[in-house]
Computed example of a mutant assay.
Amino acid sequence: MKGLLSRILNRGAPPVEPEVAPASADLQPERPFVAIGDVHGRVDLLLEIDRLIEARCPGWPVVFLGDYVDRGEQSRDVLDLLMSVSPQDTPPVVCLMGNHERMLLDFLDDPAKNGPRWLRNGGLQALASFGVAPPRGGSTDPAALDEVRERLAAAMGAAMIAWLRARPLSWHSGNVWAVHAAADPELPMTDQSDNVLLWGHPEFLRKPRADGQWVVHGHTVVEAPQASAGRIAVDTGAYATGRLTAAAISADGVSFIQTGEG
């Protein structure tokens, strides 16, 4: 990311030595890249991992796997930073949509219908990051949810909402695909449904793909990052554990870069 996020705070940090997964003859990205797991409102970890990536993989393209908002306390700060980078940067930075961005947008589109689920799943923390109080009538009061929706939309602004709506659901380099949640192992990657890419698939973690395609993903929290059977999992529950994980992916293998605990 050119150290772009790091330079905002003008801070430095020593690199950590990544763990390395064995190389696979099937792992063939067009060029090396870095995939970053679920940030969930932890701008401190986002800035830290940016420094570590700059030290280990300078100039590599970066793809964020979604879930920038909710749960953690700094959703707004995370979005502000990510909106400052783009696929047109050198190196390019791509930000995918996660299911939590989808829930936030669904709330904005229909607060009475979609508000209760979003608020139960970290939306309260996202509201607080924008300085918006929770619904005074409770999470099932349509009038209160409408009021919160108006205040949140005003606090976010049209540009941020449009940026969220424009997030792609997948990205790939060679035979390595980046998605938020999962892919149906029975379907070509180009035929995946939005729902599967955002929310998962029951066979994704159980059945390897037969087409030689690899999938790097977040969404499902793992104790340690993993690369096997055509899947690369990097969601290590950063908002709760303090461990935000990135996968540095090349034809030589997969190395994991991770922030410290706390």
Results as ranks from 00 to 15, higher is better:
A143Y: 06
R76L: 03
V94N: 02
L96A: 02
F130T: 01
P111N: 10
E101I: 03
R76Y: 02
E101A: 00
Q125Y: 13
R120H: 13
W118T: 01
A133S: 14
L124R: 05
S84Q: 11
P142E: 10
E101Y: 00
R117W: 01
R117N: 09
M103Q: 05
Q74K: 03
K113H: 13
D106Y: 03
L96D: 04
V93Y: 02
E101C: 09
P142V: 06
R120G: 12
A112R: 02
P135L: 12
E101W: 08
V132C: 09
G115F: 07
V94R: 06
M97P: 02
P111H: 09
Q74L: 00
D109G: 10
G98V: 03
S86Q: 10
D70I: 01
G98L: 05
P92I: 04
F130C: 00
R120T: 04
P135A: 13
L104N: 07
R76D: 00
D141N: 13
G122P: 07
V132D: 07
L145G: 01
L79Y: 00
R136N: 12
E73N: 14
S139W: 13
R102P: 02
C95Q: 01
M97E: 05
V94I: 12
E73H: 12
D110F: 07
V85C: 11
A144H: 07
L81H: 07
L79A: 00
L105C: 15
P92S: 08
N121P: 09
L108I: 10
D141S: 10
L104G: 11
F107M: 09
D70S: 02
G115E: 09
G115L: 11
P116H: 11
D80Q: 13
G137S: 03
M83W: 12
R117V: 03
T90A: 15
Q88D: 14
P111W: 10
L81I: 11
G131N: 06
R76K: 04
L96F: 02
A128R: 10
K113M: 06
A133D: 14
D141Q: 02
T140C: 11
G138W: 08
D77E: 15
A133T: 12
Q74C: 00
V94A: 05
N99Q: 13
Q74G: 00
S129F: 04
A133P: 10
G122L: 13
A144K: 10
D106W: 06
R76M: 03
D70F: 05
K113Q: 11
R102D: 15
L119I: 07
R136Y: 09
L104C: 13
V94L: 03
Q74S: 04
G115W: 05
T140S: 15
M103A: 10
L82H: 06
R120Y: 08
N114S: 12
D70M: 05
G122K: 07
D80P: 00
D70T: 08
D80E: 15
S139P: 14
N121C: 15
Q88M: 11
R71L: 11
V78E: 04
F107C: 06
V78S: 00
R117Q: 10
